[in-house]
Amino acid sequence: MSQPRRIMMVAPHFEEYALFLSVALAGHADVLLIVNTAVLEAEFVGRVMPTHPRLDVRHSAFASAAELVRLIAAMRRFRPDVLHWQEPSGLIKAAFAAVTVVTAGRSARTAVTVHDPVPHAGRDSRVAARLARLRRFTRARVDRLFLHGQACVDQYQRDYLRSVRPDRRVRLTEHGILLPPPEPRPSPPAFRALMFGRMEAYKGLDTLAAALERLSDDGRDIEIEIAGLGPEMDRLEARLRPLPGVTATNMFVPAVSLIDRISAASCVVLPYKEASQSGVLAAAFAGGRFVIASNVGGLVDLVDHGSNGLLVPPDDPAALAAALTQAATDPALRERLSEGAARTAARRLDWRRIAVQLLSDY
C-alpha cells in the first residue's frame, strides 16, 4: 500500500509508549489515538506531555459495550488507512480488539504490536489463559504483527506458532525510549544501582537478593534502591531491608519520581529470568544509564555486553554479584557504558526513526 494518510492507534495498555509513537507517526499522517486518558495524564503528572497538530487523542476505558460502540463509530468517522492495536491484556479489552479488527474488514490495513509473544510466568500466564482464544483470533486476522527484536520473533515462532515456517506478516520494531528526563544529567560520582518496576516472579528479584547477600557476606556492600510494587516485593522485602546499602521502596512510584531515581543511579539492574521487550530497559537508556541485565530474551537484542551494559546468565547470583562489583569498582567502565546507553537511545530507540520504519512496514 502507499504511505497511510490516516492511522488509528488503539492502546488499552502501554499508554506512554503509544503516545510517543503516535506523536512520531503524526509527523507523516493524521493519527487518532484511543487511550485511557486518565491513565495517560497520571503518567505525565509533573511532566510535559508531547503532542502534535495532526494527533487527536480520545478517551476510552475499554470497559463497556457502549464504549465499544463509540470506538467503532470513531473508526467509521475517521476512516483510517491503518488500524493499529497495542495488544490488550484482559478479556473485555481483547474482545474490543477482535471486534474492531473484524469490523475494519478490508477497508483498512490492520496491525497488532505484540509486546509479549507468550505470557510470562506467574500472574501473566493466568490472565493470558483466559483470553487465549480471543488473542489467537485477532493475531490470526491482522495484516501485520509487530514484535520487538529477533528474540521475540523467535519466541513467537517457536513457542506460540510451534512452527519453523515463518509468519510472513511479522515485522520487527524497536521499543522506543520511555521516561526521558527533561535534560541529560551526569551520572553520580559514587556507584549506585537501581531496580524498579512491577515485581513479578520472572523479574528475578530473588536472584538479586541472593547476589546482594553474597556481597554482604564478603564485606562488599552495594548501594542500591529497589522500588516498585508486586508479589515478589511483598515476599522479599523483609529479606532485603536488613542488607547494608539496600533501600527497598514497596510502593507505586510515579513516573516523574522514577525519572529522578534513574538520574540518581549509575545503572539499572534487570536480573530477569525471562524477558521479551522491556520498558524498564528503554527508560534506563533514555536517561543515559547502562544496565546490568540477564542474558535472556529480548534484552539480548538491545544490550551489547561491554558497550551499553553488562550481561550475566539468568538466575545466577554469583555472576550478578560479580557484575555489580565490576561496575562499582571501575569508574571508567561506568562512563563508557553510560555513553553507549545514551548512543543507543539516540539512534536505535528514537521514536521518529521507529515511526518511519513502521510506515514502510504497514
Rank of each mutant, 00 (worst) to 15 (best):
L311R: 06
A255W: 06
P244T: 01
G298D: 08
E200L: 13
I259Y: 04
G306S: 05
I259Q: 09
A318E: 14
R289A: 03
L194Q: 11
L194W: 03
A264D: 15
A283G: 12
G204P: 11
N308I: 06
A227G: 09
V296L: 05
E213I: 00
S278D: 06
M251I: 00
R220A: 12
E274C: 05
A227E: 01
R220Q: 13
G298S: 08
E225V: 14
P271T: 05
E223A: 15
A190T: 12
P189D: 15
E237I: 13
R220C: 09
L194T: 10
D260E: 15
S263D: 15
F290T: 10
M251C: 12
D304H: 15
L258S: 01
D260L: 08
L258N: 00
I224M: 05
D221H: 12
D316T: 02
S278Q: 03
M251T: 10
G219M: 11
D316F: 02
N250W: 08
P271V: 03
V280D: 11
K203R: 14
A210F: 02
A190K: 09
V291A: 13
A238E: 15
E237N: 07
L258G: 04
L311M: 11
A201W: 01
F285K: 01
S216A: 15
S294H: 06
G287A: 15
G230V: 10
G287H: 06
T247S: 14
T249Q: 11
I292C: 03
F285W: 08
E225K: 01
P313E: 04
L310G: 02
G230T: 03
S187A: 15
F290E: 08
N308L: 09
T247M: 11
V256R: 09
V256N: 14
A275M: 14
R185F: 09
V280K: 05
D301S: 02
T249R: 14
G228Y: 05
A210C: 04
A275R: 00
E200R: 12
A201C: 00
M233P: 02
P231W: 02
P313F: 06
D260G: 15
D260Y: 00
V269E: 05
F252K: 10
R214S: 12
S263V: 02
V296P: 08
L281Y: 10
S266Y: 04
A255V: 10
S294F: 08
A283H: 08
V269Q: 10
A293D: 09
G228P: 00
A201E: 15
T247K: 02
R235E: 08
F252H: 14
A193P: 10
D206N: 14
L311S: 04
H305S: 13
D304R: 15
D315T: 02
P242F: 04
L229R: 14
R192I: 06
V269W: 09
N295G: 01
A238M: 09
A248I: 03
S276P: 07
T207D: 13
P314Y: 07
P317F: 09
A321H: 07
R198C: 03
L270P: 01
P189N: 11
V269R: 05
P188L: 06
N295K: 11
